[in-house]
Design a protein around this nucleic acid. Structure first.
Length: 441
DNA sequence: TCTGGGGTCCTAGGACCC
DNA sequence: TCTGGGGTCCTAGGACCC
């Protein structure tokens, strides 16, 4: 918590719908719902006119169609248009301070202390008022709600307080007076499950929360979460505004219009998802070691299966190969509603001869025992080409294709643009060397 | 005519290592 | 033939956010 209200939070109002109303004047003043328009779609954003009829984000679109009047516009999203508009807004924020943290397309924090501003209440109020005008003018009428406070959480709560087109400055010293009457759901990190647990011990407002001990709170909702809420209830929040965070995972998923059983179709879907993930990884110059498959069954039960590889991947074919194997091990009877493919454990792509292709590889019979006669399996990574070439060969996982005991089929990493061939090696091939001789002591 | 898609963070158990 | 404890990695699931 700072001594002056120097953190600003901006939240664009009903953003997707507002862009649609800006671009299509006939929609202005009318209920607009943006989101999936199919039978399994959900609402991304409802305009305020549509909210008056009960339409909400995350509501199934068919339900929104039931409750909204005739004449309501149901539109699929145009992400490129939203992105372009958001960039105009973010540029306006960067005029205020170099420290801008974009949290999503339509939301950002600004550290005003890094911008050399008058941080009095009057000063930040005038600043925020000018900003709102600037945004409306630059975007052609999109409005935003602004909160300014002594911490991120107070700024965010401030921007929620008077929506749409609102402005709230929480002066230093008034944090608890603002916070305590609010429902616990106002705090970031309190969703339906946490609110329900808190309700069971008669905690409804942040003020109620303030009366719980740290021990009670962590017992109720867990270590990290409890400690975080304990601090938030006291306006104790020193999280900095950070310019850019590295992505930790990349994923793509798809809900099918109707449940899918056909194995060929499922394979094709996995390939398509892996292609999207792989190309995004390659475009961002990154790759990751853990491939995750997500499956939602006909009954909405959802599970994930993941595998961590010896080396990071960004090649769609490799990602797809792992995802397909993971899918093979899950029960698909009854049909699948959704498939997803993700890559995590990201690292900046390692360039160079590490991925060069070996020019020779020969067939053989058996993997070496790590210790002759010892029944325990050898190390999982069985082979490295001397020098630059890497062989991924893991028993029972990774790049072993054809898991017979007597031979191992190994995929050689090729250059990024052209993955190497699949070959079969034998254990007495001099190229195969245990990477890490085990130490049984 | 049920419940998207893209993320982040946390927890818990087991394996493994020292 | 008795057995601690900490740390890290991996997997799976859950809560939450926009």
């Amino acid at each position: 918590m700072r001594r002056e209200p120097s953190i600003m939070h901006l939240d664009l109002d009903a953003f997707f719908a507002a862009v649609e109303q800006r671009d299509k004047p006939s929609l202005r003043g009318r209920p607009v719902v943006v989101g999936g328009t199919g039978g399994r779609g959900v609402v991304s954003t409802a305009s305020y006119e549509a909210r008056a009829f009960g339409a909400r984000s995350a509501m199934p679109t068919p339900e929104a169609r039931r409750i909204c009047p005739p004449g309501t516009a149901f539109l699929g999203p145009r992400f490129a248009a939203y992105q372009r508009t958001a960039e105009v807004v973010m540029a306006a924020l960067r005029e205020l301070s170099p420290l801008v943290e974009q949290v999503s397309v339509d939301e950002a924090y600004v550290d005003l202390a890094a911008g050399g501003h008058d941080l009095s209440v009057a000063g930040v109020t005038a600043l925020a008022t000018r900003l709102k005008d600037t945004i409306a003018a630059a975007t052609g009428g999109v409005t935003g709600s602004v909160g300014v406070g002594t911490s991120k959480s107070l700024a965010k709560i401030g921007s929620e307080l008077r929506k749409p087109d609102g402005l709230t400055v929480v002066p230093a010293g008034e944090e608890l007076a603002v916070l305590h009457p609010l429902p616990v759901r106002s705090l970031g990190g309190v969703g339906p499950a946490t609110a329900e647990r808190l309700a069971q011990v008669k905690v409804a407002t942040v003020g109620d929360l303030h009366r719980l001990s740290l021990i009670d709170l962590t017992t109720l909702v867990g270590q990290a979460h409890g400690a975080g809420l304990y601090r938030l209830a006291r306006a104790d929040d020193d999280r900095p505004v950070v310019t850019d965070r590295e992505a930790k995972s990349v994923s793509a998923e798809e809900t099918f219009a109707r449940d899918v059983t056909d194995p060929a179709r499922l394979t094709a879907e996995i390939d398509a998802l892996a292609a999207r993930v792989g190309s995004r990884l390659q475009r961002s110059g990154t790759s990751g070691r853990t491939v995750t498959l997500k499956v939602r069954r006909y009954d909405f039960s959802t599970l994930t299966r993941s595998q961590t590889l010896a080396q990071p991947v960004d090649d769609p074919r490799q990602i797809a190969a792992v995802a397909r194997r993971l899918l093979a091990a899950v029960d698909r009877s009854g049909g699948l509603r959704l498939l997803g493919v993700g890559v995590s454990g990201l690292s900046t792509y390692v360039q160079g001869d590490l991925f060069a292709e070996p020019d020779d590889a020969q067939p053989v019979d058996e993997l070496p025992d790590a210790v002759p006669g010892d029944p325990r399996p050898g190390p999982s990574v069985v082979a490295w080409y001397p020098g630059q070439d890497v062989v991924h060969a893991e028993r029972g996982a990774g790049w072993v294709w054809g898991s017979g005991l007597n031979r191992v089929t190994v995929r050689f990493e090729g250059p990024r643009t052209a993955p190497g061939p699949v070959r079969t090696l034998a254990a007495d091939d001099p190229a195969l060397q245990p990477a890490d001789p085990p130490d049984w002591t």
